[in-house]
């Protein structure tokens, strides 16, 4: 902030000649960009520092946490991870998360791309109505259906099994995914499908052999978004997946935290186990994430 006083001095001196003015402008621009990067870097630190604390704390002993809660660990203790993975059963929860995420993502993509294609490319009686019905799902939060869904899942004996998370998540994924796929298929050139039809393809093979491969970018954006949704889902498993053996990671972490309230390194190791996979997926596929999220927002 010392720079501001220099600015004031310079402006008080006034621009006496063209040379001084040029120098003053350059200085102002320099200070401007200094300020710009100061703000950008400040928010960078705001984003990253808390994540650093998770990793750093997860590698400390309880004693180290008390002595030095915010700094680097003085000696690295991987045992927290091993303990969380085995004693804390994070290995089990990790497997549960994978078991539910894969079918959710697969079926959301499959059903939504089929429906999106049908709504975009094949005119039929009632297609507008069907589309509006799916759109309404974008406006209704999960909270609106969570209570009766519990009793429906209980009646069909899904509660306490992986199905209690898989099937409702597929249904909940439909509105956005269909909206997304429909928009993408509508944007593809009509002639491509027609040409394939003349070559003797039926509707399904036009979709499967021609259009779906062309929708690759949309599909991969949807895959990462749906995976993130399934991996991070919280309220849904909280209600339908309480049984210990089938808990996904996020829920396992929540119960683990309340059991080991005082053991911060262990809790942080658990948090890191939940956090790291999704961060890696994000870093690898970040362009897809951004595309997926911004596609609907920007026309």
């Amino acid at each position: 902030m010392q720079n501001t006083s220099t600015v004031q001095e310079w402006s008080r001196m006034g621009a006496r000649g063209p040379r001084q003015r040029a120098v003053r402008d350059r200085l102002l621009r320099y200070i401007g960009s200094l300020l710009r990067y100061a703000i950008l870097i400040f928010f960078t630190l705001v984003c990253i520092t808390p994540l650093f604390w998770v990793i750093a704390s997860s590698l400390k002993t309880t004693g180290q946490i008390a002595a030095n809660p915010l700094g680097f660990p003085t000696e690295i203790r991987w045992d927290n991870y091993i303990e969380a993975w085995t004693v804390g059963r994070f290995g089990k929860y990790f497997k549960n998360s994978v078991i539910v995420s894969i079918p959710i993502v697969t079926f959301v993509i499959l059903l939504a791309s089929l429906a999106g294609y049908g709504l975009a490319r094949l005119r039929f009686h009632g297609s507008n109505f069907v589309f509006v019905l799916f759109l309404l799902g974008l406006m209704v939060p999960f909270q609106s259906i969570m209570i009766p869904l519990f009793y429906i899942l209980k009646d069909i004996r899904f509660l306490g099994t992986y199905w209690a998370m898989i099937v409702p998540s597929i249904a909940l994924g439909m509105p956005f995914s269909i909206f997304f796929m429909r928009a993408y298929f509508s944007g593809l050139p009509q002639e491509l499908g027609d040409a394939a039809e003349i070559d003797g393809c039926n509707e399904f093979s036009v979709y499967w052999r021609v259009m779906l491969p062309l929708a690759g970018p949309a599909v991969s954006a949807l895959v990462v978004l749906q995976f993130m949704g399934a991996w991070n889902a919280f309220l849904l498993p909280l209600i339908y997946m309480q049984k210990e053996e089938i808990r996904p990671l996020v829920l396992g972490l929540m119960f683990f935290r309340s059991r080991y309230t005082q053991n911060y390194p262990l809790t942080m190791a658990g948090a890191a186990i939940v956090m790291v996979p999704i961060v890696i997926v994000y870093l690898v596929f970040q362009r897809r994430f951004v595309q997926g999220l911004t596609a609907g927002a920007v026309k």
Partner: peptide, 8 residues
């Protein structure tokens, strides 16, 4: 931070 779970 947007990709993190609420529990984390």
């Amino acid at each position: 931070p947007v990709v993190l779970s609420e529990v984390v």
